[in-house]
Simulated scan of single mutants.
Amino acid sequence: MRVVLLFVLYCFSFVVSADRLSDSNQLFDYAETAFPQFFSPAGGSTYEIDDYLVRHYPDTDNYVGIKADEVFVYGDIFNGLLKVGNIADFIELEPDYDEILAELYASGTSDVQVRGVGTVLIILADDLQGSRHQRFIIELASGQTLLIAHNIDLAPKINVLSLGDAIEFFGEYEWNEQGWVIHWTHYDPAGKHEDGWVLHDT
């Protein structure tokens, strides 16, 4: 198996999903910090082999690999291939924000503090009735759309906003018949509500 792993590691690399790669690299970084006697030198490249994401450590000739959510190590000291647990046993995984938002929409749930990332799909006129709000619709990676109602009396307006711009947000989700709205993307001067934010082109 080692010969095959070495050949594939040094000859091929593949594009994998950003979330899966991020989780894997976070796990590999943890392994290097927690167990340098097994996994050095740190900071090597991550490769895909079949259904595994793998990092090789030439100083110790050991490997760490992830298949789905399972974590494996490989090397003479481990008597070959050894499953050591799941990713969540070692690191805290980033939530799937799109999945959380989809569940809130499907259930008609409101008043939940959420986070997400999308791209600007439609720019609407500012709402100047009462508290002023900058309004725009973003599209999530899942394809679902979301209206951002950003209070510009309590937070700076995004002055240069264009279609296709990246938006990251943290605010309160509100369900309505047209879909979903995010507001409270600002600090609360009364200190009674969790502060929110909008990041543009992050």
Rank of each mutant, 00 (worst) to 15 (best):
M1D: 12
V8L: 14
V8E: 06
F12Q: 08
F14I: 12
F14E: 12
F14G: 02
V15G: 11
V16D: 12
D19V: 01
D19P: 00
R20A: 14
L21E: 13
L21Y: 13
D23F: 03
S24M: 07
Q26N: 15
L27P: 06
D29K: 11
E32H: 03
E32F: 03
E32R: 03
E32P: 06
P36V: 03
S40H: 10
P41K: 04
G44T: 03
G44S: 06
S45K: 15
Y47G: 07
I49L: 09
D50P: 00
D50I: 07
L53W: 01
R55Y: 06
H56S: 11
Y57M: 13
P58M: 05
D59R: 07
T60N: 10
V64P: 08
V64M: 14
I66Q: 09
D69F: 07
V71K: 00
V73H: 04
I77W: 06
F78V: 08
N79D: 15
G80W: 09
G80F: 08
L81Y: 11
L82I: 06
A88E: 12
D89Q: 05
F90P: 04
L93A: 13
L93V: 15
Y97I: 02
Y97W: 12
A102T: 11
L104N: 10
Y105Q: 00
Y105F: 08
A106G: 04
G108E: 06
G108L: 02
T109N: 10
V114G: 02
V114Y: 04
R115F: 01
R115V: 05
V117R: 02
G118M: 05
G118R: 01
T119Y: 14
T119W: 12
L121P: 00
L121D: 14
I122Y: 09
I123W: 05
I123R: 02
A125T: 08
A125N: 14
D126M: 08
D127W: 09
L128K: 14
L128P: 01
L128E: 15
L128Y: 08
L128M: 14
Q129N: 14
G130W: 03
H133E: 02
H133T: 00
Q134T: 03
F136M: 01
I138Q: 00
G143T: 01
L146Q: 10
H150A: 07
H150Y: 04
N151L: 11
I152V: 07
A155Q: 06
P156T: 08
N159Q: 13
L161M: 04
L161R: 01
G164V: 06
E172Y: 03
Y173P: 01
E177T: 09
G179L: 04
H183E: 15
H183N: 15
T185H: 03
T185C: 15
A190W: 04
A190D: 13
K192Y: 10
W197Q: 03
V198N: 04
L199H: 11
H200V: 01
D201T: 10
T202F: 03
